[in-house]
């Protein structure tokens, strides 16, 4: 047997494993980061908030005019995801949203 068992003097195995180790470590870090962000709800504000473009909602914000893309603002500005084609929800409240 050439030299002690397991010893690889060429260092090739070591390089391969180093790469695997890096990938594994990066994966673990990414995993924990994703869970942390998802738990805290970071990265996007998902409030749908009324999207009437006329400042109808209490929070204001021309949500209806916003371009598509959920890359919403950090918390504070209700951007939410974009509307699709105007739906019944954005019909001005002419209809009596009456109780009963």
């Amino acid at each position: 047997m050439e030299g002690p068992v397991f010893v690889d003097t060429s260092g090739r195995r070591s390089k391969v494993l180093r790469r695997i180790g890096l990938l594994l470590g990066a994966g673990c870090l990414a995993y924990a980061a994703v869970l942390g962000a998802a738990f805290m709800g970071w990265g996007t504000d998902l409030a749908p908030s009324s999207l009437l473009p006329f400042g109808d909602s209490a929070r204001g914000g021309p949500g209806g005019l916003r371009p598509a893309g959920g890359y919403g603002d950090p918390a504070g500005r209700p951007s939410g995801a974009p509307t699709a084609a105007p739906t019944s929800d954005t019909v001005p409240t002419a209809a009596p949203a009456a109780a009963d």
Binding site: A38, G69, A81, A84
Partner: peptide
């Protein structure tokens, strides 16, 4: 009508969460 398509960060973060 209550649905909104999810895009961008929301979509990717959501997918990452489901994968996790």
């Amino acid at each position: 009508a209550a649905h909104r398509p999810a895009t961008g960060v929301t979509l990717y973060e959501g997918k990452a969460l489901v994968a996790a």
